[in-house]
Amino acid sequence: MTRSFHKMHGLGNDFAVFDARETPLAMTPALAAALADRHTGIGCDQLIVVEPSTIADVRMRIWNADGSEVEACGNATRCVAALVGRECSIETAGGLLSAAPGGDGASVDMGAPRFGWEEIPLAYAMDTTALPVGWEMLEGATAINVGNPHLVFFVPDLDDVPLERLGPQIETDPLFPNRINVNVAQVIDRGRVRARTWERGAGLTRACGTGACATAVAAIRAGLADNEVTVELPGGPLVIEWRSGGNIRMTGPATLAYTGEIDLEAFR
């Protein structure tokens, strides 16, 4: 069965987006992983299926490159808003979001962050503002759920952290029953933070929208940054706004690279 798809990206975090609002698409973990393969498939960090919703304008489902379905993806949310082409509400497994396209991207209300240990979730109760555990030079992480689970480590020099080695160790640690996304961040000043993300199920990515949100919230909550902060990722910057007790707003680009067709039966 041949289906059209959109290859899109947010700051280099790339997606194969299937619009299933009119024609349903049955997606499985194995099919998602096969399509995401960069050598034999379309190639992407995440595969996105846009479906009808009974509670929002559209429903967005997200599969990582390893085939695991996840709750949220900030960069993909901007891409879906750009695809819809107007202000819209988006149902995700991580909650209901609202987004509006504008310029070369979109602005998204990502909802309120959650800090309870059981909301991350962690395997057992502990202080999520500074976890009393560590992995080599990475210690004292903040744990935050921004639709999906994140750790944020603040470090003196971002480039000194071997995230490609430590990321998978931390992601799969038994402390995190649903695995976890791992962010390392370096505060430049009160309006700028550099960050890198090891994304659960996808590995190192050029940008992670929810990772930028988690990083900004952690910095603001710790008094290291103002309520609006630019998070500089390897793929480029995202602007994150948050005030204690409120929702997170993320603004950044969303780019359509090309539209194509693919025979899904060849991958089943």
Rank of each mutant, 00 (worst) to 15 (best):
M27W: 03
M27L: 11
M27V: 09
M27N: 10
M27I: 01
T28H: 03
T28P: 14
T28I: 13
T28W: 03
P29V: 01
A30T: 14
A30R: 10
A30N: 05
A30I: 05
A30H: 11
L31W: 00
L31R: 03
A32T: 08
A33V: 08
A33L: 09
A34R: 15
A34S: 14
L35S: 08
L35D: 10
L35E: 13
A36G: 05
A36W: 08
A36L: 05
A36Y: 00
D37Q: 02
D37M: 06
D37K: 06
D37A: 08
D37H: 07
R38A: 01
R38M: 04
R38E: 04
R38G: 00
H39L: 05
H39T: 05
H39I: 01
T40D: 07
T40V: 05
T40R: 12
G41L: 06
G41I: 03
G41M: 02
G41T: 02
G41W: 00
I42H: 00
I42M: 03
I42E: 00
I42V: 11
I42P: 02
I42L: 15
I42W: 00
G43F: 06
G43Y: 11
G43R: 12
G43Q: 07
C44S: 14
C44G: 11
D45E: 07
D45I: 00
Q46I: 00
Q46Y: 04
Q46G: 08
Q46E: 12
Q46V: 03
L47T: 06
L47R: 01
I48K: 02
I48C: 03
V49C: 15
V49D: 09
V49G: 06
V50S: 04
V50N: 01
V50F: 01
V50P: 06
V50K: 03
V50E: 00
V50I: 15
E51I: 01
E51T: 10
P52D: 09
P52Q: 08
P52R: 09
S53A: 05
S53R: 13
S53W: 11
S53G: 08
S53P: 13
T54W: 01
T54N: 12
A56S: 13
A56I: 14
A56R: 05
A56F: 12
D57W: 09
D57Y: 07
D57R: 08
V58D: 10
V58T: 02
R59K: 14
M60H: 02
M60R: 06
M60T: 07
M60C: 08
R61Y: 13
R61G: 14
I62H: 01
I62L: 11
I62Q: 10
I62N: 11
I62V: 15
W63L: 07
W63S: 12
N64V: 07
N64A: 11
N64W: 02
N64K: 04
N64G: 11
A65G: 15
D66E: 04
D66M: 09
D66A: 12
G67V: 12
S68T: 14
